[in-house]
């Protein structure tokens, strides 16, 4: 289990990196490497070139901007979890991070790497989806912005071109009256989710005015539970309402693998979504 041969590049600035990948044919970007490196060791991949982004310091930051938090794509999961800004402004992301891998993998693993790897069972893309994050993507020629909701195109296939780099992720920060919850079911601590559910929910005068529910682990990509969201808005988050809303989420895609059947995933989604909604609603009520 040794990586196959490849050409290695480690640009030290974003510009250099963008120029480089515009000239390389079959380059694979190496962020934290906590997914790419195992795939290389197992020789599932044999890219011609590896472009290592770890020396691009300008992609490691967390800052507050208007009513958003902007995070550099190469910010490690460990730094994120320790950041006072993130802890205060993005509690959902922090909760999601508590389920991500282990101490050693969080040291290297990055937010941008996780979002671009787009493992459907990974936590951070699910949190980013529920938080309606926006992704800034750059190539040597242009910059573009894409909503997290539009980023997944297919199983582990994000809407990003070989000559592009995800540079930063913008999380809008919601006003008071919003509650969050991240629930996950995995067989062991730190494992990828069999099902994860992220909820962001706002209340005004006891009624749900805004709800975003994202689910991971269920299908081929992280998904929004839109029917569930629609069923909540305008309602009071009482037990019967939440039960009914969860029951209505028939728009989730489920897949089967060695860990779980579609039926079990559906069952878990109902259980976890219900728990997450209760928690988020309670928190929203106490915040408003």
């Amino acid at each position: 289990m040794k990586p196959p041969p490849f050409d290695y590049y480690d640009p030290s600035s974003l510009e250099e990196g963008l120029q480089l990948i515009s000239t390389l044919d079959e380059a694979k970007l190496l962020a934290g490497g906590q997914s790419l490196m195992p795939m290389l060791n197992m020789r599932y991949l044999a890219p011609q070139s590896i472009v290592d982004l770890n020396r691009i310091e300008e992609l490691r930051f967390c800052r507050s901007e208007n009513s958003s938090v902007v995070i550099g794509a190469m910010t490690t999961q460990r730094d994120l979890a320790a950041s006072p800004l993130i802890r205060e402004q993005l509690p959902l992301l922090v909760e999601a991070l508590s389920h991500v891998g282990h101490l050693q993998t969080r040291t290297r693993g990055t937010l941008g790497g996780s979002i671009c790897h787009l493992d459907p069972a990974a936590e951070l893309p699910v949190a980013a989806l529920a938080l309606e994050a926006t992704l800034q993507v750059r190539s040597a020629k242009e910059a573009r912005e894409i909503a997290m909701g539009d980023f997944p195109t297919f199983y582990m296939t994000p809407d990003i071109m070989p000559a592009e780099i995800l540079t930063e992720i913008t999380f809008p920060v919601r006003a008071a009256g919003t509650g969050y919850a991240f629930e996950e079911f995995a067989r062991r601590h730190g494992d990828f989710a069999i099902i994860s559910v992220a909820v962001s929910l706002s209340l005004e005068a006891g009624q749900v005015t805004y709800a975003r529910v994202a689910v991971g682990g269920a299908g081929s990509v992280p998904q929004r539970a839109k029917l569930l969201e629609d069923a909540l808005v305008g309602e009071r988050p009482e037990d019967s309402v939440l039960d009914e809303a969860v029951r209505l989420s028939t728009d989730i895609e489920y897949i089967a693998d060695v860990h779980a059947t579609e039926e079990y995933r559906r069952h878990l989604f109902f259980v976890l979504a219900r728990r997450a909604l209760t928690r988020a609603a309670r928190q929203a009520a106490s915040e408003s």
Binding site: Q34, M37, D52, Q104, R108
Partner: peptide, 11 residues
């Protein structure tokens, strides 16, 4: 702490 199998020496 890092996993030594998931990091290249060159890094």
């Amino acid at each position: 702490a890092v996993r030594g199998c998931l990091m290249l020496a060159v890094q």
